[in-house]
């Protein structure tokens, strides 16, 4: 297996993976979406809400705010033995919000969500998310409980937004048949091909979606497009809750745990 990093930013990662079956890459992708835990606000205790935003809408908006997740110091509520209905310091983080509009209209931003001193690491990824807007005299006071969860339970716990894999094209140009008419270059909507010295060459091969428009446009059958065998492009973007490498690592750990569970269960089956 061979891994190539195509693009890496603060919140996204694009990889080319060689010699790994598609099924395995899809398993990693699905685990990243549905089973890698991240933090999200789950319970909201509303002390006062005199704003025009209904309690349930407010709670929903709070839930969707991505939180910086500290995977190493928290456990999932179902794995915690505290037995408390609202959880303990190991299985939940508290965020407090108390905003009152005095004499003018006031927007409540995610920066107003103050992490409790017991868990300063868990806070919104961005301070500029508008949560509510208050008319003069209105007030929102609440306690929010953030917990670890997985995308399987609710999409707010998904650490990734888009996460996809696709085939990589392998484009063959038969130089003896190509007369450089340029029809395939014009027809390609992803601008994969270009005419270089009168000969068609692939210049942007990762953009190719294997649509075969170039093949059908060529009157001399000089171009062939095939998916590369056992090489795939995997790209995912995070919500900001976890760094992309960490999500990938966690997904691999979960996959390994599933595989070893499978093997241990197989051990009980008589051969």
């Amino acid at each position: 297996m061979n891994l190539e990093v195509v693009e890496k930013t603060e919140d996204s990662l694009a990889l080319i993976i060689h010699s790994l079956p598609l099924g395995l890459i899809n398993a990693i992708r699905r685990i990243m979406i549905a089973e890698v835990p991240s933090m999200a606000i789950d319970d909201v205790l509303i002390v006062e809400n005199s704003s025009f935003i209904y309690d349930e809408v407010l709670a929903h908006r709070l839930g969707l705010i991505p939180l910086i997740t500290d995977l190493d110091s928290f456990v999932k509520p179902e794995d915690c033995d505290c037995g408390e209905p609202l959880g303990c310091g190991r299985c939940r983080a508290v965020l407090l919000l108390d905003v009152e509009a005095k004499d003018s209209i006031r927007v409540v931003y995610s920066s107003d969500l103050k992490p409790d001193p017991s868990n300063p690491t868990v806070r919104p990824v961005n301070p500029d998310i508008p949560i509510a807007k208050l008319a003069p005299g209105q007030r929102i006071k609440l306690e929010a409980y953030a917990r670890l969860g997985v995308g399987l339970q609710h999409a707010k716990w998904q650490p990734v937004t888009v996460c996809y894999h696709r085939y990589i094209a392998s484009i063959t140009i038969h130089r003896d048949r190509c007369d450089g008419c340029g029809r395939c270059v014009d027809v390609c909507y992803r601008k994969v091909l270009a005419l270089i010295n009168g000969i068609v060459s692939p210049v942007n091969i990762l953009e190719c979606t294997l649509c075969n428009d170039c093949v059908t446009s060529c009157p001399r059958a000089a171009i062939e497009v095939r998916p590369e065998k056992d090489s795939f492009y995997l790209k995912f973007e995070t919500t900001g809750s976890l760094p992309p490498q960490r999500i990938f690592e966690e997904a691999l750990k979960i996959l390994r745990a599933k595989a070893s569970e499978f093997v241990s269960k197989l051990g009980g089956v008589e051969r």
Partner: peptide, 13 residues
């Protein structure tokens, strides 16, 4: 009546 926090389809902030 306010902006959605995330994209409806992909979940981007």
């Amino acid at each position: 009546g306010m902006v959605p926090i995330r994209c409806f389809s992909c979940g981007k902030l």
